[in-house]
Design a protein around this nucleic acid. Structure first.
Lengths: 207, 207, 207, 207
DNA sequence: TATGAATGAGAGTTCATTCAT
DNA sequence: TATGAATGAACTCTCATTCAT
């Protein structure tokens, strides 16, 4: 049933989607939709949740792959931090490429639309948390102790850059997720690499 | 009148906004809104245009400031490319901070909502063009010849990072535009600085 | 439900009729009207169709009455052509008298009102066809071979005369359908009677 | 100004015509239209009046042509009654053919549309009066004394037949007014001719 | 439990009509 | 006097939501 809702919402948007069409697409009757999911808003939020959770799971399981054997003491130390970051990005671009009618469209819809902004912000915050953790480890691996606010800001920038590149790929270029992930790594990582050596750019004039 | 429309659209979104409310907020009657701006869609697009144009003007005039004296031979060479980029970012964050109920919300709305996606995409493309030009000059100043596609990808990433940081600032932190711009410069420029020395990050394992 | 629509349309006309009023008159809610009959235009056309069909059925079944016994070899030869014509006229006036709020008013409305003129023209053409057939048989019974165009013109004139007398009866006089039908027969039949003897009136001067 | 109104009303109908368009077509401003003619309804009625009057004048002046010399004692006796009738019909068909965008369309519109039905009925009654007078003279010339009601009924039938043939000519056939007038005379006159000899058709069975 | 049928509430849009100039 | 500018009032149509079965 959520599949039907996601398909319809993605195709025509929240407001243009009618519950009739969603029910028809799901092969059930409208009162059933209400019985199971409540209102139209709740239905949309449920879609958002499910797709967002799937994205998060895809990223996290890419960064920390499920292990077949016994759980090791330090599972995440198996990969160097930059490698983890790249895998996370690759998983992100892969997911978006595979679900462009699902997640990315839904996400773009809900982004600026009350009463969903809070929901989207919360999901985005979870994403930023994950990225912050990765970045913090990366920088910590370089022996530096950045202020948390700086790390969060970097995470926001990185997430935004990823979303923007995802749109670029979806709308214009058909490019393998690996290539796009490497692109972003090249752009961001080398900056982070410099940063962790303590370099800082600053404006040369008061403007 | 556009002010009222921007205020209402920003507050409740395109679909939830009623022409009655917009007219009331503008202090005129509904038929006047239709007489001046046409349909609801045209009204929204007019808002989009005005805010987008203002943003572009703010950025461009920050990068290439109007000169009081006689026009110099090479006006744009007056500032080094990195300085120009920083000024553009500062102007962007300043504008978004000053127009948070206007531009950023409107933009987030229209981003994923037909029939406005094309309009937004066009404005975003103009922005990416400007940023691409700046980045190309930056890299050219380092003596390298990047492929255009790579520059465009970097521009997309940078624009996305900027949008995301703008949201972060708008929603969570109250931080001076200078600080945010420097933040992003630190993150991006050092990466670009490395890149222009030919460094490249690549994944260490096939994953 | 069509009854309510016919009543309202007849009373105030297509454009002055509001769907609210029709729904209220029908004792149902407006969305039901839309669910069953579609748009206002479709609703009006449905009224037109129903009333027109009823009229045609009334006339045809009067001219060729349903037979109780076994179907005879030449059922339509059972009555002489003039008798058939008179019965058709009587059925017409009877119907109009019984449905004055339905058919005649509706018909007068739709006659000159786009986009219904085509619909009315089609129904009128069917009526003219029937009358043409009767007239042709009448004249053929007299042994003459009129040109088809002349027969059609006569049919148009007869139909128009019938409509006009119907209005007269409806608006001014309360007269039995038999009387009105005989009136029109007297006027028309004797003319046709002369014509079938080859007589022709022609202007005596060029004017 | 009435010309503009007639043109617009004829083209799109009363309800679809906007006062804006009429004012624009007339080359004046809307408040002027209201100043001169009052409301939209009054404007339409004025159109109806003018065109109706013109038609009546055309018919009457055809039946009783303006005389150059001194007024004779019995001007209408100059022409035999049947000739007068034919001239009236010819004038009618000529007028309708020449003003098909004016009178006939306006007339068809107003026929069934409140609040114009009364107006149309009045004009039609005047027409019927004229025709009744002609018919009465025709029959009186034959030495018979028909009941007035019978004459009026005949007039109604004749007027209706004329309208119907007018529509037929306007919509389908392009035929000279003389031909159509003769057609109708052939059909009607011979009937009247028989009638004035006292012949009467009557149904042979009670039905 | 599952649904066909029904609706209340509200949206965008238009236009005849009128002031203030 | 003539008009540009303004509006009140409706109308068609839609849809999320709920009963009665």
């Amino acid at each position: 049933m959520l599949d039907a809702a996601v398909a319809v919402f993605s195709a025509v948007g929240f407001h243009n989607a009618s519950m009739d069409e969603i029910a028809a697409r799901a092969g059930i009757s409208k009162p059933m939709v209400y019985a199971y999911l409540g209102s139209k808003e709740e239905l949309f939020i449920a879609c958002l949740h499910r797709e967002g959770t799937r994205l998060m799971e895809a990223i996290v399981s890419a960064v920390v792959p499920p292990l077949a054997g016994p759980v090791p003491a330090e599972p995440e130390s198996a990969l160097p931090p930059d490698e983890q970051l790249w895998r996370g990005l690759r998983a992100f671009f892969t997911f978006v490429g595979d679900h462009r009618d699902g997640w990315s469209v839904l996400y773009r819809q809900a982004r600026g639309q009350e009463p969903f902004t809070a929901e989207v912000a919360a999901m985005r915050a979870r994403m930023v948390d994950v990225v912050s953790g990765l970045l913090a480890r990366v920088i910590a691996a370089g022996g530096r102790q950045p202020r948390p606010a700086d790390v969060v800001a970097m995470a926001y920038a990185l997430v935004g850059a990823g979303e923007s590149l995802a749109d670029w790929v979806v709308d214009h270029v058909e490019e393998a997720a690996e290539v796009t992930a490497t692109r972003l790594m090249n752009f961001v990582w080398l900056g982070a690499g410099e940063l962790l050596h303590g370099a800082t750019w600053r404006p040369s004039s008061p403007g």
